[in-house]
């Protein structure tokens, strides 16, 4: 009898747990971000600048928010939201209004078969494929791309300089990358299609753990952002993307179309000043010297007459 009561209690609890997330917005309703209707009213209220789950995105969010505030626009940040698959939905349901993005990744996200690599072409294509409630402002010269890195020893052992050199040895190697890299068109599937590279195994890790895995030998190759100061700090060798799988990845503000006019001037001014070197320098301060991204962002804005 007692056991039967316990089982019934478990069943009730499970049913409650399942229905509890049924009310309000249903996170399971749409698995495809483009299918999301995008509720929420349009304009009005403070601007929320979102950031993805890596330090450069946090830094860029702080820079955007700082530039907006300097123009008297009420702006806050909401960083560490997650990966693209997650945060684009946050933009569409209007919980954030501005997001630092990358042209190539954005183009591929909305057009899985896109293969353009020229920076201006990619930018133009992004404007075409974005859902109509989103738009991009001016792209910056700063670029941050996915990059495949190996240790100096591995590079020497297999004489690797470009990604295509991996084709003949990848069968013995382990690749470390964020979990979403396994599904993305320019991730594992792209490496297979464009380069014919299939790694022996895939180790899903995030952030600093990727660097650690490569440095400690738990992975032989790793996908690290090209502006990451850890590449130089650890003496990793970045393999040249000779078949241009990763394309052009200029940093660009992705904004909700109904708020674009408000934020355009401030953010275009930022994009005009951003360079790859500036980003790399700032990331060294946040990631290696452990300075607060907000402080680093303020210094950048002040020294460029934006803050």
């Amino acid at each position: 009898m007692k056991r039967r009561t316990a089982l019934a209690a478990v069943a009730v609890a499970a049913a409650l747990g399942l229905t509890a997330c049924g009310g309000g917005s249903d996170p399971l309703a749409s698995d495809s971000p483009t299918a999301s209707a995008g509720g929420g009213s349009g304009s009005g209220g403070a601007i929320v600048v979102g950031g993805a789950n890596f330090s450069e995105s946090t830094l860029l969010a702080e820079i955007y928010a700082g530039a907006l505030k300097a123009k008297g626009i009420d702006a806050t940040t909401k960083t560490n939201i997650g990966a693209r698959e997650v945060y684009l939905r946050a933009l569409q349901d209007n919980s954030v209004q501005v997001f630092p993005e990358y042209t190539g990744a954005l183009a591929l996200f909305y057009d899985k078969s896109y293969s353009g690599t020229d920076a201006d072409e990619v930018y133009a294509h992004v404007k075409e494929v974005l859902p109509k409630d989103l738009t991009v402002l001016d792209k910056s010269a700063a670029e941050d791309n996915d990059s495949i890195n190996v240790t100096k020893e591995t590079a020497q052992k297999y004489s690797l300089t470009k990604v295509s050199d991996l084709a003949k040895v990848a069968g013995d190697l382990t690749l470390a990358a964020p979990p979403e890299f396994k599904q993305r068109p320019q991730g594992v599937p792209g490496l297979e299609k464009t380069y014919g590279i299939t790694f022996k195994s895939f180790r899903p890790l995030t952030g600093q753990a990727i660097i650690q895995a490569l440095a400690n030998g738990q992975a032989d190759a790793a996908n690290i952002f090209s502006t990451d100061p850890a590449i130089a700090a650890n003496g990793f060798v970045t393999l040249e993307d000779d078949k241009k799988l990763f394309g052009s990845q200029n940093i660009v503000p992705l904004v909700r179309a109904d708020r674009a006019d408000e934020v355009k001037d401030a953010l275009n001014a930022v994009s005009a000043k951003l360079t790859t070197e500036a980003i790399a320098g700032m990331l060294k301060q946040t990631d290696i010297d452990k300075k607060d991204p907000k402080t680093v962002a303020q210094e950048f804005l002040a020294s460029n007459g934006l803050g």
């Binding site: 990966a83 693209r84 979990p179």
Partner: peptide, 11 residues
């Protein structure tokens, strides 16, 4: 659970 979150596939 972790990959589902990373891919944005909550199911």
């Amino acid at each position: 659970i972790i990959d589902g979150q990373a891919y944005g596939e909550y199911r």
